[in-house]
Design a protein around this nucleic acid. Structure first.
Lengths: 341, 341
DNA sequence: GCGCTCTACTAGCGCGCTCTAGGCGAGTAC
DNA sequence: GTACTCGCCTAGAGCGCGCTAGTAGAGCGC
């Protein structure tokens, strides 16, 4: 009935009980040739019986390699959740283990990465890193590193991100095509990809001769930011400045905050105002009518990230690589023709 | 310029470069007495110089203990994110390391737990486990286990959860106090805590003589569920059955889905209908007017969970323990007097 | 001189595993 | 017979560290 003190069984225990050598047990558990089917079977049965489970610490120490990829993510980012879900199966397919390390308040990126490295991760996958490019570059020199959702221009780091410009352009074509002219952008501050999105928004406005309507409301990739922007717009409306007819939010979380604020104030989306998000995180389905958003294929991004890490580990490619995925506008219910249009 | 093949420096490297023995380096890194300040300093400097970082696998193997707690969580649950954020600092305070393992589609709880055990976690903290009680009990016999958000009645498992009944009762008193009578509950299926919440809802309705109004809409702890319930209620209204005046949702996610659906249909919350959530995850602040919800103190729950695990590891307490925290109704903007009231 | 204590350090075993180098017996070729 | 291969198995080194036992040297009392 002891709770603690149950000594974890080792290979030696299995070997003894099965009447074979330790090495043979090892062979069986690594699924390597060199054991007869009968022995194999017996070893596995005995192991199961005494509850043996290979110790990954010892295993990892004995093999030179850990076959482990470290993933740094932010615990509150729904899109990171989507990515993590995509990373697991791909890593498993390639025979790698995954170690997660979350950032959050009181636990910065440096700390999260330290934890991963201490655990002998062979490579580190950073989801939407926020650190200084120089720091990320330094990390890239120390270990194989992949940045997801943000490109780090001159760093020794592979990166996977979407062609932000294309995504924004599609969204803008969609809105302009519907007849919108007063299109406002709530940006994502220095969040991943937001510089590119902002730039593409500006370019699109100019291209369509809408420069006078161009307006960027500073924000970040949070619901809070969407709420604040929504309140700002509503307050302005109350002071006589008309609402824009469409808003391009920095990401889905921001769009959600905005939508809630608008709904609350009785603004009908999309009749009075169209809203487009960015990410197509599972948040997009939260709206009954669905959020029109730019789809970033999380599963595909995850696959690229894992493959980049693994390929670099196994082939030691020399030049940093970059996967730029095409985003795809997903039209759902929050966008429609402008009020007068 | 090599990308891979950079041999990770070991203690021996540091020792050699610093002109001391390996053991001394170990002493320095474990912050143990037995080294002069000068030597200590020199060792640390050299280590930093060559980029040495203790290898936790080896360390873990050499010490008998890993001082590591495994945490199983669901990557898409905002409340789990809150818990994880609380777990890290408490574990660090007590000198333990944290290993995360996510469940998600294609990665069940069994798999997530296996991964943790393989990494030699001394204890496992399960956030909102969904597995069969028997399986959890079995796990509890194999290793120190703490269940958060769900009590496992006769299992060898510590648990931390809130007094669901009290929370629901507070919410119901609040609504009834405002004058509501037609209060519907969207339940959480077999999600953690939902059985207790359902029971408490029924009891409260009876206690206030509202048994004829009692109604439980089956659901689960997702936005989808809130959306579906909302649509159901709206459809019924369109067929002549009046809307309830208040809805007690199974959790915040469900409440959010419901709110979006209602907002979309032009139902004014809280004027036409009050909504109360459960969890006080950071979602609650997403609404501009704030979601009235039952606050579960994630940080406190996290602290209890970590402490239970650690105490059991260090003192081998024999009887399963249970921490039942008092939830607290947090009144925000989504609840108010009923339409006619 | 001797014996004692205290600080600063080192030697070396062992944690649980992987993996290389071999051993042993049976089968096959000549 | 010898020589060689092949399938199944074992011995034992070593992964990077923690830790116990021990040593060298300084300081001190007598």
């Amino acid at each position: 009935m002891e709770t603690s003190g149950k000594q974890r069984p080792t290979m030696a225990d299995v070997a003894e009980k099965a009447g074979v050598s330790r090495a043979l047990v090892s062979i069986v558990f690594r699924d390597q040739p060199g054991a007869s089917p009968q022995t194999r079977d017996r070893v596995l049965r005995v192991a199961d019986e005494i509850g043996y489970r290979p110790d990954s610490a010892a295993r990892l120490l004995a093999r030179g390699r850990s076959r482990t990829l470290g993933v740094m993510f932010t615990v509150h980012q729904p899109f990171h959740a989507d990515l993590v879900e995509g990373i697991y199966p791909e890593a498993e397919r390639l025979g790698y283990d995954i170690l997660l390390s979350a950032t959050g308040q009181g636990r910065g990126e440096a700390k999260a990465v330290e934890a991963l490295l201490g655990h002998r991760c062979e490579a580190v996958i950073l989801l939407g890193p926020d650190a200084q490019p120089a720091d990320i570059d330094a990390l890239g020199h120390r270990t194989v590193t992949v940045s997801v959702g943000r490109r780090i221009p001159h760093a020794r780091v592979d990166s996977v991100h979407t062609a932000e410009g294309k995504g924004v352009r599609q969204a803008m074509e969609h809105l302009v095509g519907l007849g919108h002219r007063g299109i406002v952008h709530i940006d994502g501050g220095r969040g991943p990809g937001s510089a590119e999105r902002r730039r593409a928004y500006r370019a699109a406005m100019r291209r369509h001769g809408l420069e006078p309507e161009l307006r960027v409301i500073p924000g970040e990739h949070t619901e809070r930011s969407g709420i604040d922007a929504g309140r700002l717009l509503l307050a302005e409306r109350d002071h006589g400045r008309p609402l824009p007819t469409a808003v391009l939010a920095g990401n889905d979380r921001c769009a959600m905050g905005l939508l809630m604020t608008l709904a609350q104030a009785g603004v009908d989306v999309p009749r009075d105002l169209s809203v487009v998000g960015y990410d197509d995180s599972h948040l997009s389905h939260l709206m009954p009518i669905g959020l029109t958003t730019v789809r970033q294929d999380a599963v595909l991004m995850a696959q690229y990230a894992v493959r980049f890490a693994v390929e670099r580990l196994e082939n030691a490619a020399s030049e940093p690589r970059e996967a730029v995925l095409d985003p795809k506008l997903t039209v759902r219910g929050t966008s429609g023709p402008p009020p007068g249009g």
